[in-house]
């Protein structure tokens, strides 16, 4: 499709949705009061930066945990495989909010506030790591038997086979869903607000309890999350296109 058509279509869709939203707000007869919400900008910025920090911790941690779990799922020790499967099922079968409270009252409560942030990010990482392990597992299992046979026929050791064949191929397969999971990590980090960790959503809740300017607070907050997640989602689309290209 020509580029211009695409851009015009996009603008038309954007204007349409914006119009619907504007109309809905007009019907609400809402009195906008941006000035009051804006006076708390510092709190918002700190919160946003904390969310960025939590995500910056949780994304690599959850990848590491996911990778270790995925490898353990393939380990030759059966009880280890079972233990990982039980952990993954329990983690994926319960809400993050519930897990946060359980982990928190077990470990987090006694920590100083800096450590609380790290403990919160770690808890989030274990939750997301369970999902990521499944993404990696699917990627590893998707590597064809013929590739493994070839690696063996060339005289590769098990470690070399993982290093040069399985990991690169599995990662290629895993990248699009992995990038999507990264966006989830950023959004899910908002739940850490229930633990009193002063991230972006908590800043919003706190401000709102003072100003009662809900829209003026949560619309910018939504925007603040989008700034982080939209680039990831665009990146995901590109990765998916490229993956299609290669196969």
């Amino acid at each position: 499709m020509p580029r211009l058509t695409r851009i015009l279509s996009f603008i038309a869709a954007f204007v349409l949705l914006a119009g619907i939203c504007a109309g809905a707000f007009a019907l609400l007869d809402y009195h906008w009061n941006w000035a009051q919400a804006a006076s708390y900008w510092r709190l918002f910025l700190d919160g946003w930066l904390t969310t960025v920090g939590i995500s910056a911790l949780a994304i690599p941690f959850s990848c590491l945990i996911g990778m270790l779990l995925a490898l353990a799922r393939r380990a030759p020790i059966m009880p280890l495989r079972d233990a990982v499967q039980i952990f993954v099922e329990l983690t994926r079968g319960t809400p993050l909010l519930v897990q946060l409270f359980i982990y928190w009252y077990a470990f987090g409560e006694k920590l100083s506030s800096d450590l609380r942030l790290i403990a919160g990010a770690l808890t989030l990482s274990f939750f997301e790591g369970a999902y990521i392990s499944e993404i990696f597992r699917a990627g590893i299992e998707g590597v064809g038997a013929s590739q493994l046979e070839t690696a063996r026929s060339l005289g590769f050791s098990r470690v070399q086979t993982y290093r040069y064949v399985i990991f690169p191929l599995a990662l290629r397969q895993s990248l699009p869903p992995l990038a999507g999971q990264f966006a989830s990590i950023i959004k899910d980090s908002s739940l850490l607000s229930v633990l009193g960790i002063a991230e972006f959503s908590l800043a919003a809740t706190q401000t709102n309890s003072i100003t009662y300017t809900t829209f003026e607070i949560y619309l910018p907050v939504a925007l603040g999350y989008l700034i982080l997640t939209l680039p990831i989602s665009l990146w995901t689309q590109r990765l998916e296109q490229r993956a299609r290209f290669e196969t």
Binding site: S146, Q147, E149, T150, S153, Y164, V165, P168, L169, R172, E246, T247
Partner: peptide, 9 residues
């Protein structure tokens, strides 16, 4: 091999 089995990456 029959299916070439080159590493695709």
């Amino acid at each position: 091999f029959q299916a070439y089995n080159l590493f695709p990456h």
